[in-house]
Design a protein around this nucleic acid. Structure first.
Lengths: 235, 235
DNA sequence: ACCTGAACACCGTTCAAGT
DNA sequence: ACCTGAACACCGTTCAAGT
């Protein structure tokens, strides 16, 4: 915290003027990630960011005309990081393992980087480059399924489906974590009258209610893959 | 717009004092939904809501101590509406059709009511009643699968998985619609160099890029159900 | 018990002005 | 070309005061 001086006092920092090239768009983006990671993306404000960078708020507006423009730039960075973290297909594995590894990697990344997750899930890709990269990845993945006998169209829709499932898990887990800070652990269990719920009563015990585990995630992935395999056998 | 008078002029409305019981929490919630539906949940502010209700902003704070409290109340309403819109299982249908109908109904609801969607997806259930209702629904659904031969634990995880898939589709479609207002139709196609992408080039034509169709949604549902059936056969 | 205006801290953004 | 402070409209919230 570079300027944790006086908040309430009327004395203003009276900052020294910075040199001309002393802040760049890259520095601002990096600073924005630092602020967001230290608190959250929601709490990232232009004012706080400016303080963090020890710059006048308005200086940021020379590099980014709107806050939204800064967020877009951050999203590009996040999308690239996600792209780089997805393992490429290997020749020595089947399409099933490829899908499993890719989806697991995406989920892991979103779990360990909430800011990235919030950025990426908020919007589709902005730039041409990001879209191009995404399409190239998709082409390779779809080709792998097509090579295994799936019609091209089916391969595309299948990849799409397993990504939607992963997305659902990711957003749900994100929602849980967001509110867990408030709700505090699984004391929900006591709120419920279990008398009419014999099945659930026997299943949901100590573990946090409706939480998502690695096994639960794996289950859905396996079932989708099994469903794809069934389609392959029919042809 | 009850008070679309002067914004810039220094003359303030000078409102007449309202009677004591003239606004209730229910009226405020209803008004909040009206404002949100007319614009969006993001644009719902206490000030705008107060204007809409022709009430002083601070009056709302007597009924709801925080904006978050109002949002919670709205979420409860939304969750109840979602609950009521999900068709109950029928005796003359199998578990497959039940799941299909339920997931389709949820997706349809979220498509036609964006405000509900934003509220419900933002947070898990708050109140005891909502949680209780959700658990009762879940019990019935899980019981149907269990009756078909699934172990109880598997039935629960399966229902969870298909809900996660549906959630992924819903959030993705929501994201698309949010940005479609900006991006404007599928002119993305021209941005991309298709030379290295023979498969995708042949598949993605006129239709909006990466859009989600009813058939795509159906595909994932079918594959999951097929995956569940495979599990049943193994036992 | 319920409604109200004044007031505050914060936030995104514009603009005219510095160097 | 790049950095800055003053200023504005808006937003959530508190508080003391009305009836």
């Amino acid at each position: 915290m570079p300027n944790a001086v006086s908040r309430s006092a009327a004395t203003k920092p009276a900052r020294k003027r910075r040199e001309r090239g002393s802040i760049s768009t890259d520095l601002i983006i990096a600073g924005a990630f630092e602020v967001a990671r230290a608190s959250s993306l929601d709490e990232l404000s232009m004012t706080v960011l400016a303080d963090h960078l020890d710059v006048a708020v308005t200086s940021i507006y020379w590099h980014f005309r709107k806050k939204d423009e800064l967020l877009r730039a951050m999203t590009e960075v996040a999308i690239r990081k996600q792209h780089d973290s997805i393992p490429p297909p290997r020749d020595d594995e089947g399409w099933q393992d490829m899908l499993r590894r890719q989806m697991t990697a995406i989920r892991a990344l979103h779990r360990e980087d909430e800011v990235l997750s919030d950025l990426v899930l908020r919007t589709p890709a902005y730039s041409r480059e990001a879209t191009q990269r995404a399409m190239e990845d998709l082409e390779v993945t779809v080709a792998k399924l097509a090579g295994a006998g799936f019609p091209a169209r089916t391969a595309l829709v299948a990849v799409n489906a397993i990504m939607m499932y992963t997305r659902g898990i990711i957003t749900y887990e994100r929602t849980l974590r967001r509110s867990d800070a408030v709700i505090l652990g699984g004391r929900q269990r006591q709120m419920i009258d279990w008398s009419g719920l014999p099945l659930l009563d026997s299943l949901i015990d100590r573990q946090p209610l409706a939480g998502t585990s690695d096994q639960d995630f794996e289950f859905g992935i396996s079932r989708l893959i099994a469903g794809f395999e069934a389609l392959l056998r029919e042809a």
